[in-house]
Every structure is written in C-alpha cells, then in structure tokens.
Computed example of a mutant assay.
Amino acid sequence: MDFDQPPVVRVSADDRLDPQEWPMTVPAVAQVVREGLDLAKGVTFLVGENGSGKSTLVEAVAVAFGLSPEGGTNQGRHTTRESESPLHRALRIQRGLGAARWGFFLRAETMHGWYTFVEQHQNPWARQPDSSYHEMSHGESFLEVLRTRFDSPGFYCLDEPEAALSFSSSLGLISVLDRVVGEGGQVLCATHSPVLAAMPGATILEIGEWGVRRTTWEELELVQHWRRYLDDPRRYLRHVLD
C-alpha cells in the first residue's frame, strides 16, 4: 500500500448540480464534474482567460478540502459576504493515505478580510504573534503570508497570487512553492502569470472553451500572446486604441 501520497489524490463529483445552471455551464467545470480530476504531487497550475472557470475550480476544491472560502486555513473560518459557487457541495476529495490535512487558501481578492480576521483572533500565547498585515503594502503582506503560513507539508490553494506581486516577487513565490513541494506539500494554483507557470516540474492544465487539457508552458496560449506582445506591442494595441 502506497502511503507516500499527496494530500489530494483525486477530485470527483456527484450529480446534484443542474447542468443548465452556472457553474455547470462552464466547460471546464462540467468536465471535472463529469470525469473527475487527478491531482499529481507537487504543483498544478490552472491557466486560462477570465471566466474560463479556473478560479471557480480552485475555490471549490479548497472549500471541499475544508479550507475557509474567503482564504485562510481549515482551523478558522470567516465570512464577509458569501459569494462562492455551489460547486464545492458536489465535489468529493480523495485524500492521500497518511498525507497531512493542513492546508491554506490564498485568495487574492479577499485577503484583506482575512487579515482583519487574523488580527481580531490573535493567539495571546503564540511565541510569534501574527504580523500587522494591514500596515504593509499589498505585495509585502502577501510575501509575509508566504513566509509565515507556507511552512508545513499540507495542501495549498492559490487564486491568482500574482495580482499582488512584482516580477521579482513572483520569482520569490516560485522559490516558496519549490520549498513547500520539497517538504512534501501539494499546490493547486489558478494563474494568469507566465512567470509562475514556467516553474520547472509543474503540471499545467489549460482551461478554456474546450474544458481542461494538459499542456506545456511553450504551448500555452498565454505564453504565445505575451511573446508576440513583447516583440511588438503595437500589433495588439492598435486594436484597442483605434
């Protein structure tokens, strides 16, 4: 029996969602519900355009795993305004044998609410109190979360973390993810960043009107567009600034 498994081995679903209603109308979501999704060890990137379903999938997997829908861990839940899709209620998580149950959901759009939650629920007996995230810049606070929270071999879900990070900080995030994987952790990340998606050894799933397909960094539409844009921005800008 293999006990060297990642925290999440497979995501499957039952049939409780109406196929005519959102989010089942999103091809990638419908495919995962229909076929399931095997998650490999290490890092898996979901890459796709806005509205393709990548964030919906990451959110649903995170909540089905037991993490707070607005970001954070499985040890404290906070809600400012319920906005998550019903997808998590249909998902079933097959956990790895002997794998850690710790996890963290870094969700760019709701992290400031999580900062407030953490500050209001400080552990007075903690050796090192949580940092005052609100006193930092957006990028600095993200980096501090990466430094202090990504420190166990658990399951880490990230939704577009590059939103707060510069180019050099994005490279720093790759270093953090590499350390997490080296310590036995597993990562599922939705991203628009060709920088993050270039991480060696990562699994890349491209999300779009076709559903979900495994691909390589070189074959990503995202990478091809960025290459053409950087080579000649006017090829793209003339269509939006006419």
Rank of each mutant, 00 (worst) to 15 (best):
R34C: 05
R234P: 00
S169E: 14
C189F: 02
I207Y: 04
D2Q: 13
V181Y: 01
T203D: 09
E140R: 14
L188F: 08
R213S: 10
G98I: 08
V8D: 01
P23Y: 02
D242G: 13
V43T: 11
S170G: 13
E21T: 12
V26W: 08
F167S: 06
W125I: 08
I174S: 03
M1Q: 13
P27M: 09
L158D: 00
G53W: 09
A202H: 05
V9F: 00
L91P: 06
S166P: 10
F117C: 00
Y156H: 07
P23W: 01
V58G: 00
L177V: 02
N123P: 02
V61D: 05
L171D: 02
L220I: 12
E21R: 14
G71K: 01
H112V: 14
T25H: 06
R89G: 04
R77H: 09
T148C: 06
S175E: 12
D130R: 06
W217K: 05
G184V: 02
T148Y: 02
D151Q: 12
Q122H: 01
V43D: 04
T80N: 06
A164K: 04
Q31T: 09
A13W: 02
T56E: 01
G98N: 11
S141G: 14
T148L: 07
V176N: 00
L91S: 04
P86A: 10
W226L: 13
F65W: 07
E59A: 10
F105E: 06
L222S: 14
P69Y: 00
R234I: 08
D151G: 10
L57P: 01
Q31N: 09
S152E: 15
Q75S: 11
I93Y: 03
G185Q: 06
G201A: 05
D231K: 11
L143V: 15
G48F: 04
Q31A: 12
H134N: 13
T215A: 06
G139K: 10
T79P: 00
P194L: 10
Q122R: 10
G72S: 01
S152R: 15
Q31K: 13
W210S: 09
